[in-house]
């Protein structure tokens, strides 16, 4: 795979968000393997930490500056930076403003992609021959991914329906979609909201899980682990036996 304007092999830097690194290494591994299946040269800079979102999200922009600088140092040399997280992508692309906007910073910000949009828009993938997932699956779009990255049409607007994750999942053999009654409703994670406003956050999560359960889904999938970590936490406490799996794993050929 070549960089379109340079005619040289594409160098991709893999960003694995902190909570994926800690709690869902399998999502990072699936993302890496999936990208490699398309012949990309993918590197994971081992000194990476975080995109700075927790601080920015809380309004503490100054406190995010050093983390942002580190991010740019880690990823400045890549043609593309790909991450299995829409909300981190949104942070880098749209909110990484605590530091001086040098050429390197601008490069990193404009070249950071969420995995689904990278596969859909940049690689323009049209098949996942290795993937088969004969299960009923409910799709969850993270709000940043939905309304800021515009990964899918949103119910609030009058626009032609589209969904990049659904388009990709539609290429997976045997998959069946379960419809939610409130597909675009926020699940209540909201980054630091989940800790600072715990009551409302948990209630929203419980309502989301109930909707997923009623849809008859066996699995819930999303391109954001953070929302699913929250939803899964609610589901377990409620005694609901839904399974949560990152979209990277399904597209990489996970069977169950």
């Amino acid at each position: 795979m070549l960089v379109e304007d340079k005619g040289i092999p594409m160098k991709v830097g893999l960003f694995v968000p902190c909570y994926v690194d800690m709690f869902h290494p399998e999502t990072g591994i699936a993302t890496l393997e999936l990208l490699e299946r398309f012949g990309l040269s993918v590197e994971y800079p081992v000194d990476q930490t975080c995109c700075g979102q927790p601080m920015t999200n809380t309004g503490c922009e100054r406190e995010a500056a050093k983390t942002e600088e580190l991010f740019v140092r880690n990823f400045g040399k890549y043609d593309y930076i790909v991450t299995p997280s829409g909300s981190c992508t949104n942070q880098v692309r749209n909110n990484m403003t605590a530091i001086e906007q040098t050429e390197a910073v601008k490069h990193v910000r404009s070249r950071t992609y969420e995995l689904v949009e990278f596969l859909h828009d940049v690689l323009k993938v049209d098949a996942f021959p290795w993937a088969e997932f004969p299960h009923r699956v409910a799709l969850h779009n993270n709000c940043n991914t939905l309304r800021n990255l515009r990964i899918a049409s949103m119910s609030e607007r009058r626009e032609e329906p589209f969904s990049k994750p659904k388009a990709l999942l539609g290429m997976v053999k045997g998959i069946e979609f379960a419809d939610l009654t409130r597909p675009d409703e926020c699940c209540g994670f909201g980054g630091t909201f989940s800790v600072f406003e715990e009551g409302v956050s948990a209630k929203m999560g419980q309502d989301k899980v109930t909707d997923q359960l009623k849809s008859g889904a066996e699995y819930v999938t999303s391109s954001d682990s953070s929302c699913m970590m929250h939803q899964e936490g609610c589901a377990r406490r409620m005694g609901v036996n839904l399974k949560y799996i990152h979209i990277a794993q399904i597209l990489n050929g996970a069977r169950a």
Partner: peptide, 26 residues
């Protein structure tokens, strides 16, 4: 009101260092 995610045996970072170290320029 939420269960805590189970922590896996190793982080992605550890997995990468063990399995892909030779490829890692960083």
């Amino acid at each position: 009101k939420r269960d805590i995610p189970e922590t896996p045996k190793q982080t992605f970072n550890e997995w990468y260092r063990r399995n892909r170290k030779s490829q890692s320029e960083g």
